[in-house]
Design a binder for these strands. Structure first.
Lengths: 147, 147
DNA sequence: TTATATCATCATGATAATATGAGCTTTAAA
DNA sequence: TTTAAAGCTCATATTATCATGATGATATAA
C-alpha cells in the first residue's frame, strides 16, 4: 500500500515524537531500524516540507516543527507518494477523467474515499497513543535519555 | 494501489469477457492499450492460474475458463501482487506478528479489511455491468463481432 | 581557534518492476 | 503435408525505487 520510504518516514516521526525533543539521525535509525544514510535524506525532505526542524553541530538533530496532533498522516504520505496516489482509480493508469470513468470507478470510489479520510483525520498523535503501551511492554524504561 | 500488471490483467479480462468468446492477444492488446508482448505473458499466467483457457493455431486465442460472476477480483490480484498484499500493515515492512502489532495496527485494520472484502465480493461481472453503459455511449455498436 | 559532531548534498550502486524482442512449439486450415 | 497463425518461453533492455558512500557546510564546545 505505502512505499517503504513513506513507512520509514512515519516510523521516524514516531521515534522523534516519542523523544519529546531533539534526536539525531543515528539514534532514530537505530530505534526504527532504518538505514542511516537513507533516513538522513528522508528527514531532510520532511524538513523542507515543514514537518521537522533540524539543527547542526554537537547536540544537533531533528525535532517536530508542530505538535503531533497537528500532523495528519496524509501530509507525510503526500510528501513521498505520487500526487495521484488517491486520485488514481482501480483500472486506470491515470486518474479517471471527469465524465469518462473507468469500468470500476463507481464501485471503487467509496473505498478510496474512506482510505483518504483515514489518512486525513489520523494524526501522529493517534499513532503515539497506539504505540506507547507496546513500548512499555517491551522495554523496562519507555523513554530513556540518550547522550 | 494496484501494480500496473494487475491493472493490465483486469482490463484484459474485461475485454475478453465482453467479447463473449475467444479473442487473440493482438486484439486484446489493441482494445485495452497494453504492450502486446507483455500482455502475452500476463495472459499465460492467468491461464496457469485457471482463469483463462487458451488455444493455439489459426483462430486461436484466449477465453474465460468460468463465467464472469465466478471470477472475484481478489483472485486476479492475488495472482500478481505480493501474497502479503492484504496482510501487510501500515507501518511494518512485513505483516504485524500476532501479539506484537505495529503502532498503527488497530487503526488500520478496518480499512484493510474493507478493501479486502471489496476485492473478494466484487466480480468481473460487476465490472462489466459498470463498463457496458460507457461503451454504449462511446461506440455506435457496443458488442461488435471480430474476425 | 581548533576539533568534532552533525546535517546537507552529490554521485554511485543494487534490486525489482516493467517492458521488449526473437525464436520455438503447437495447432488448424489450405 | 505444407504453411501460417497463434501462444510459449527465454534473454535482454529500461525505469523507478531503494540504498550506500564520500565529501562539504555549519554549529558547538574545549
Amino acid at each position: 500500500m505505502l512505499s517503504q520510504t513513506s513507512r520509514y518516514a512515519l516510523n521516524a516521526l514516531i521515534v522523534i515524537a516519542r523523544s519529546g525533543g531533539q534526536v539525531n539521525v543515528r539514534v532514530i535509525a537505530e530505534q526504527a531500524s532504518i538505514p542511516p544514510n537513507y533516513l538522513g535524506k528522508i528527514l531532510h525532505v520532511l524538513g523542507r516540507r515543514g514537518l521537522l526542524r533540524s539543527s547542526r553541530g554537537v547536540g544537533g538533530g531533528f525535532q517536530l516543527a508542530r505538535r503531533p496532533e497537528e500532523i495528519p498522516l496524509l501530509e507525510v504520505i503526500e510528501t513521498f507518494e505520487d500526487p495521484q496516489f488517491f486520485a488514481r482509480c482501480l483500472l486506470g493508469s491515470e486518474s479517471c477523467p471527469e465524465g469518462r470513468p473507468c469500468a470500476a470507478h463507481a464501485l471503487w470510489v467509496p473505498i478510496v474515499e474512506q482510505t483518504r479520510r483515514f489518512f486525513e483525520t489520523t494524526t501522529l498523535a493517534d499513532l503515539l497513543a497506539e504505540a506507547q503501551p507496546l513500548a512499555a511492554l517491551a522495554e523496562p524504561a519507555p523513554l530513556p535519555e540518550r547522550a
